[in-house]
Amino acid sequence: MDARAAALAWRPPPLIEAAWLRWAVYGGALLYLVLALGTLEVNWQRAAEGIERGGRFLAAFFPPDFASHWREIEEGLLESLTMTVTSTVFGVILSVPVALGAARNLAPLPVYLFCRAVIAISRTFQEVIIAILFVAMFGFGPLAGMITLAFATIGFMAKLLAEDIEDIERSQAEAVRATGASWFQLLAWGIQPQVLPRFIGLSAYRFDINFRESAVLGLVGAGGIGDTLNNALDRYEFGTAAAVLLIIIAIVLACEYASGFIRRAVQ
């Protein structure tokens, strides 16, 4: 009888152990959903009109219009690409010292805190917001975009690289230290070989991200193909917009394929 009662009483254990917390989470989620949907302001009539416009937009992909604004597209594309290359190179180079400073096993506390602060600032704001500030400082054009992306690259690379440095196999670094190596030799022989593959992989990945981001910076005047796209959409030239989108997708795909290839090669 006891076994039977136990069998009857058995339930799979709930995800959250404490009953009150479980109900609080469920209730809270429900309450949030009601509130969020309740305060949602949507002009459904306007949205319904959009269906037809959306259809026209989709139709513009067949075929896209590369020709009529090719010069604009070309200019925007070149700006985006050059911006991507330079910002990745500068950002990656600058991220190395920041990463070394932000690795707790290498840097003394004051340096560590300073570098972590740099990383936090660079990662908090969306690139576009930073671009607005840099455009205000450096004027319109791709230079502001380049600086924005380089700045964002520093935060991204330094954070991940610092985590990687903190995760190295300590015995290898210890062995190098035991030979009487200097601090720089420790970096070059004990740490660099361990983190290099991931460093290269991350750089390739960041190149990828930088290109994607470069496509939106044009919206705030920081140069790149986003500007071209924005203009096309403003003029309701969906054919050109479709062409730009297809080019962006193609380049992102190529970048992704290349960065995947690089990452496999350095493993």
Partner: peptide
């Protein structure tokens, strides 16, 4: 330290070199 050679448990070679 140059005058003291050290041999490690689990070798501690720099594996990618």
């Amino acid at each position: 330290r140059r005058r003291m050679g050290m041999i490690f448990q689990e070798y501690a070679l720099v594996e990618r070199l």
